[in-house]
Nucleic acid binder design. Structure first.
Lengths: 247, 247
DNA sequence: CAGTGGTCTAGACCACTAC
DNA sequence: TAGTGGTCTAGACCACTGT
C-alpha cells in the first residue's frame, strides 16, 4: 500500500482530493509552498507532483496565479488504452475475443516501414474480433513482426488479453504507441463480423506499438462499431499529445 | 532568435538533431551529464529539456539505460490543433470558412453543464463550414457562452481564424481543450454542406474549450469529411494523454 | 505590493542497465 | 561494477498575477 516515491504520494493525494470534490472545477489549489510544508517535502518534489496532474489535464497552471482545477474526472492510463481487456474490466464490463484468422505472410512495403523490417520479411497476420458484454464492438487486423509472431501464434484462440499473456510468457512490455484516428465505411468483412450494414460508419484506429527501447512489435488496423466506444483527449497550450495531420 | 529559457534551447537543439537524422530511430541520446557539460547547464535543466521530448513521444526513457529515439517526426502543438486556419497554413494549404447560420438561443441541459451556465441561459449557436484549398472538409456546430457570444457575433461571416480574431479583439486565450472522438453517419445537413451522400462515415469530434483559468468558452460538434484529415496521438506508459470511454 | 509559479544551480543518494 | 536515469534537497533569482 505504501508509496515509496514522495512526488507520487503528493500527486495521488491531490487527485483524490479533486475527485472527492474538495477542489471543484474552477477552484484554486494550495500554493507550492503550502504543499511543501504540508508534506514536509522540497518545492522541487511538489512541482514534480503537480506536473503529473498538469499532463493529465486535471489542472491548469500559469505563472503568477495559483493552479486551477479544470476537470474532476481522471483520465485513464496507457495500460488501459493498450489492453482492451483491462480497460473493459476497469469499466465494469466483460471483454471477450476470438481469433478469426491467423497466418504467416510477407510484409508489405508500408508495414515493413512501420515494423522496421525489410520488405517481404515474414510477418504474422491476425484477424481478431473483440466483444464487450458479448456484443461485437471491434475488429482488429494486426500484423506482428517475426521475432514476436511465434509467441503470438502459440496463444489460445480465445485469449482474453494478448498484452497480458505476452508479458507473462516472454516478459515483453508494450511501452509506446502511435495512433491515427479517422472514419471509414464498413467493408463486407467489417459489416459481417460487427453485425451492421455495409457502408456503416466505423471509427478506425491505425496504431503501431513498440517496446520501451523503441523496437516495433505490432501494427494494427482497428475498427470500432459506433456507439460502443469513444476516445477522449485532453490537451493544453502547455501539453500537446494530439495532432491533426493530412490524410 | 535568441531563446531566453535554457531548457527550451536544449530541447530545440535535440529536436533539430533528431529531425536532421543525427539520431535515427533506435539511436541513443547523449547522457544527462554529457548534455549538461555541452550546454554548460545543470542536470536539472537538462532533465527539463528531455522531459519535453518525452511528453511529445519523440524519445523513450528508462532508468539505467540511455534515452532512445522513438520517432523522428515532430507532432504539432495545441495551437495548431485549436486553430484550423493556423494548422492549414503550417501544412502549406489554404483555409477558408463561412458562417452558414448564427443565432441566439437557450442552453440545453447538456450544453449548460459543459459551459457551466444555467439551464436555458442564453447561448450563441453558430454553424460554420470550413474549407481546405476550397474543398469543404469540416462542418462545425459551435455553442458559445453568453459572455463571449457577443464578440463572436460581431465577427465577419468569412472570418478565417476565429481564435486569432477573438484574441486580437478581446485578449481571450483558449488554453485547454477536451475532445471526444467517434464516428457517425452523415445527416442530411452534413451531407449537403460537405458534398457527400447521406449516411457516409464522418469523424465526429465533440470538444469543449476553456480559458487558462478553466472558464468554459465554447462547446462544439465538429464533423470531418473522411480522407481529408487524420488525428494522431502518441502515448507511453509514462504519459497518458488519451483514454477510451464508454459511449 | 506581496505572493505565486517558472527557471536554474549544485550538490546527494538510490535503482537499474549494460557490460 | 561503472554508468545511467529517477528522486530529492535547499537554496536563488525572475516574471507575472492579483489586490
Amino acid at each position: 500500500m505504501s508509496e515509496p516515491r514522495r512526488h507520487e504520494r503528493i500527486a495521488d493525494e491531490l487527485r483524490r482530493a479533486i475527485a472527492d470534490g474538495h477542489y471543484p472545477v474552477g477552484a484554486a489549489l494550495p500554493s507550492e509552498a503550502e504543499l511543501a510544508a504540508a508534506h514536509d517535502a522540497s518545492r522541487g518534489t511538489v512541482r514534480q507532483a503537480v506536473a503529473a496532474l498538469l499532463a493529465e489535464g486535471l489542472i491548469g497552471s500559469r505563472q503568477g496565479a495559483r493552479r486551477v482545477v479544470l476537470s474532476t474526472t481522471p483520465s485513464q492510463s496507457f495500460t488501459e488504452l493498450r489492453s482492451f481487456a483491462q480497460w473493459a474490466r476497469a469499466g465494469g464490463r466483460t471483454a471477450g475475443g476470438r481469433v478469426l484468422a491467423s497466418s504467416w505472410d510477407v510484409a508489405r512495403t508500408e508495414e515493413a516501414g512501420l515494423l522496421q523490417v525489410r520488405h517481404k520479411d515474414p510477418v504474422l497476420r491476425v484477424l481478431r474480433l473483440r466483444t464487450l458484454d458479448s456484443e461485437p464492438v471491434l475488429l482488429e487486423r494486426t500484423v506482428y513482426a517475426e521475432w514476436i509472431g511465434s509467441a503470438v501464434a502459440a496463444l489460445p484462440e480465445d485469449c482474453e488479453s494478448v498484452t497480458q499473456r505476452l508479458y507473462d510468457d516472454t516478459g515483453l512490455v508494450l511501452a509506446h504507441g502511435e495512433h491515427h484516428l479517422d472514419a471509414v465505411a464498413a467493408g463486407t468483412a467489417d459489416a459481417d463480423h460487427l453485425r451492421l450494414r455495409r457502408g456503416s460508419p466505423l471509427l478506425r484506429v491505425r496504431r503501431t506499438t513498440t517496446t520501451a527501447e523503441g523496437r516495433p512489435v505490432e501494427t494494427s488496423d482497428d475498427r470500432y462499431r459506433p456507439g460502443s466506444v469513444v476516445f477522449t483527449v485532453r490537451n493544453s497550450t502547455q501539453t500537446n499529445p494530439l495532432a491533426r495531420t493530412r490524410a
